[in-house]
Design a binder for these strands. Structure first.
Lengths: 206, 206
DNA sequence: TTATGAAAATGACATTTGTCATATTTTTAA
DNA sequence: TTAAAAATATGACAAATGTCATTTTCATAA
């Protein structure tokens, strides 16, 4: 399997090259040190995988990656970086990179390359831990976990939509007083003080 | 490396077992065929990796996975499934699974296991292509966009933490009345009715 | 049928909330 | 320094909220 490494720190590229070639089935075809070179080398070698740093002088890895994938939609680009910035993560997913792992995780680079080579996408754990926050949460939640029943949960949902008691009552064909009682019970169960805390709780736990 | 396979189709489990053991460095400690067994076998063997189907009779893989991870937060669970439903993907990410790949991708199972073993998280390409749609817009909070200033935003933030006016006042060294006035202005500016709607707005727009 | 319990409602009450008009204080500019 | 502005505060008020004790309603198991 042919790999190109692009990193503006020569030392890093060389270390990785050594690690990869020690595995036996990975060949490092060449090494680049910025985005422009990444594009040039990709065209030249058409490597199985392009291993690239995100932050580099001149053209960044993200920009170069976007250009390469635009021209070669099946290019397999694996970002190797020091930082786990939300923004980078999202962008790399968007341009269609095959992974995003931290340089610190030395031993996991070779396995990651293998996975990518086999059609998988790979993320380091530190990266993965951030993804839930970036995801649009579905209204398929486990209200049983909170020891509240379905009806109560329905009220929680409406509170988290910003409805007041009267509106909730209208929505659920209950009296306003009943809604208040329900809410009182819910707050008690979840150990919260008021509907605002309930809304916050909802969005934090969904 | 020890692996447990759980799938309600014996044929699938056996095929996978064969594939994995052919690699030489993976041992399949045991095989289960539903969620309950997954839990039992995990307790019994504490495998390096648990490879499990999502859809199964009785307890689903997701439920079992959630239970296992709850008890053993560092459990490495890799879901192996036939379907790439958005809901499954999101849930599996949420419960902290280490991956989600399609059964069809036979050859990539072993590399995926290796990646997971090395601390990575792995997703099949079909899965990955869906993720951009699930991601929220900006992770950057732009309060200028809402025409509120920094101080006002600070109050919004505290409301969204569930503090009441008195607490916010204490936090910002203001009088309670002042906080109320600020809040009144904020609600006016954002065209909202009350603090609960403000909290909802916050979480929806962050 | 009755009785039993859950679901829904009521009324009373203290607090909190949001609004507004109007001070007071502090900062800034001239 | 003074004048204008902003930031902060006050007090009053109506509405909404949360709590609680007590009913009323209603389905259904016995």
């Amino acid at each position: 399997m042919n790999v190109i490494i692009v990193d503006d720190d020569q030392l890093v590229s060389m270390s990785i090259k050594t690690i990869l070639e020690a595995t036996g089935d990975i060949t490092v075809a060449d090494i680049g040190k910025n985005g422009e070179e990444a594009i040039k080398l990709y065209e030249q070698y058409k490597p199985d995988i392009l291993l690239m740093d995100i932050r580099m002088e001149g053209m960044t890895g993200l920009e170069a990656g976007a250009k390469i994938i635009e021209k070669h939609p099946d290019a397999k680009i694996l970002f190797l970086t020091t930082f786990s910035d939300d923004e980078y993560i999202i962008k790399s997913i968007h341009i269609g990179a095959k992974g995003y792992i931290l340089k610190q995780a030395f031993e996991s680079i070779a396995p990651a390359i293998n996975s990518v080579y086999n059609g998988q996408t790979v993320f380091g754990d530190e990266i993965m831990n951030k993804i839930p926050n970036l995801i649009n949460k579905q209204p398929t939640i486990n209200f049983e976990e909170w020891n509240i029943n379905e009806k109560e949960f329905e009220i929680v949902r409406l509170v988290a939509e910003g409805l007041n008691n009267k509106e909730i009552a209208g929505e659920l064909y209950l009296s306003e007083g009943t809604v208040r009682n329900y809410l009182s019970t819910i707050l008690e169960k979840l150990n919260l003080r008021d509907r605002t805390q309930l809304a916050c709780f909802y969005y934090k736990h969904i």
